[in-house]
Design a protein around this nucleic acid. Structure first.
Length: 429
RNA sequence: GUGGCCGUAGUUCAACGGUAGAGCCCCAGAUUGUGAUUCUGGUUGUUGCGGGUUCGAAUCCCGUCGGUCACCCCA
């Protein structure tokens, strides 16, 4: 056993997990591009002050922060939105609005790790900057829905919980509650489902509210509330509204969200939220000391909880397995039946690879049976046998178990032709 | 940062104060030009690490490092 363990809260990616991670990346990237988003990336470390500016001093509890050799206060990024705001506000005149950007990369939070929450995790972020209309939120929600569908997660398996912070602002204004209580109040709403009713009541009393009137308001905030009208019309036109459930308890933790807020939840496994986001119209102004005032909205989806859901959802599991097989399999395995032919076999290996065909072979002399077993283990579609009959070589279809003989000079084009044919057999069943 | 539970071969687990074991995986052979199954043989550990109690510790105690759960937080 190795003397070393991974650092607390960090993960290894052995080939199988790495392939699963790449499948998730590929899917995120494909759907985001389909929606016209451009990929960007920021640094993994930023000045700790960048996060203090956005979220206040207490945020350092959850920051993975340290001093560098020049005593600078540095943090591993806990999210990318501050970096995005910094990048966009620095060069905002270079980009036509609305800016539609996405990013995939690791983030870090110094928390107690447990299943579904590690100190390093990977997030997919999609943001739209420079347009404050409900069409922006609709586009982001549609993207989130299509990402889930692309993974093979259906309407039976997930739901978008949608709300709008404005409805609570209106409620508080109607009740003549001072603005200074807004954040405290939203924190209470955020926990209202998990906390005991009498505790919630106790926390509401100093603000001047009762649980009964809050519950009554929540019950009345349905999909016909004017705050959702435009969003509903947009998503209904796209045929996506059935994925939405209005839920006034969704307020999203910290302060910067301004209007629409939403989270993606699974319906069957009681997992943590898969994704969350909303509009944050004041953040760019805050981060640029008022120099650049751009409305914005976005969401983030983590790889950890998503990975758990994909394993537990049959339809998604099937797509994942297919993708993993496609990523790990090779096209053909070259079998050296007669060591005297190895130079010819190596020449063929290189020619086949130059033609873009995925090839593997045994480094040293091995029994033919072992080599066929290796071909099977690598999920090869074909075995190419170099033996005494050279310059004829044998091509065996490992799925159909049939074989034929071709001249070595025609090998590359023959294999290319065979790979065009649909694979039929037990591997695909 | 606080508290509960857990840590044994590559892996999944057993042994629960008295000589550390099994399945799977891996390697070789049965089978010297064709994949399954089966059979035979083989490799593998300072029991996470450090200390203590004991004639004797994987086992009990303390510390520490990881994992997991709850709190916290969820940008």
């Amino acid at each position: 056993m190795s003397t070393f363990q991974t650092v607390k809260g960090f993960r290894d990616f052995f080939p199988e997990e790495c392939a699963r991670r790449n499948y998730i990346f590929d899917t995120w990237r494909a759907v985001a591009r389909r929606y016209g988003f451009m990929e960007y990336e920021g640094p993994l470390v930023e000045s700790t002050d960048l996060y203090r500016k956005k979220s206040g001093d207490e945020i350092t509890n959850q920051l993975y922060c340290f001093l560098d050799k020049a005593k600078r206060e540095i943090s591993l990024r806990p999210e990318v939105t501050p970096s995005l705001a910094r990048m966009v506000t620095a060069r905002q005149r270079d980009f036509k609005k609305p800016i539609k950007w996405f990013q995939i990369g690791p983030c870090f939070r110094y928390e107690e790790p447990q299943e579904g929450r590690s100190r390093e995790f990977i997030q997919f972020n999609a943001d739209i900057i420079g347009d404050s209309s409900p069409a922006t939120s609709a586009e982001l929600i549609a993207l989130a829905i299509d990402v889930m569908r692309e993974f093979g997660v259906s309407a039976d398996d997930f739901i978008i919980r949608l709300s709008n912070r404005e409805i609570w602002n209106t409620f508080l204004a109607d009740k003549n509650i001072a603005a200074e209580h807004t954040q405290t109040f939203l924190q209470i709403i955020d926990k209202i489902e998990r906390a005991r009713p009498e505790e919630t009541e106790k926390k509401l009393t100093p603000i001047g509210l009762t649980l009964a009137e809050v519950r009554a308001f929540m019950a009345a905030a349905d999909e016909n509330h004017p705050a959702f009208a435009e969003l509903k019309a947009n998503l209904t036109a796209r045929g996506l509204w059935q994925h939405i459930r209005i839920d006034a308890t969704i307020v999203r933790g910290l302060a910067y969200y301004t209007g629409t807020v939403f989270e993606v939840f699974d319906l069957k496994h009681d997992l943590r939220a898969l994704a969350g986001g909303g509009s944050y119209d004041k953040l760019c102004a805050l981060m640029s000391d008022g120099h650049v005032d751009l409305p914005a909205a976005g969401f983030a989806m983590g790889d950890v909880v998503l990975g758990i859901l994909l394993k537990k959802t049959p339809g998604a599991q099937m797509k994942l397995t297919e993708a993993l097989l496609a990523a790990s399999s090779i096209d053909a395995y070259v079998v050296v039946a007669d060591e005297a032919q190895r130079p010819h076999a190596l020449a063929a290996v290189q020619s086949l690879r130059a033609a873009g065909i995925r090839i593997d072979y045994s480094f040293g002399s091995q029994k033919v049976g072992k080599q066929f077993q290796a071909a099977e283990d690598r999920k090869a579609r074909f075995a190419i046998v170099f033996g005494a009959e050279y310059p004829e070589v044998v091509i065996k279809n490992l799925i159909a178990r049939s074989q034929s003989s071709v001249p070595a000079t025609n090998l590359v084009e023959e294999i290319q032709k065979l790979l065009q044919e649909p694979a039929i057999g037990p591997l695909i069943a």
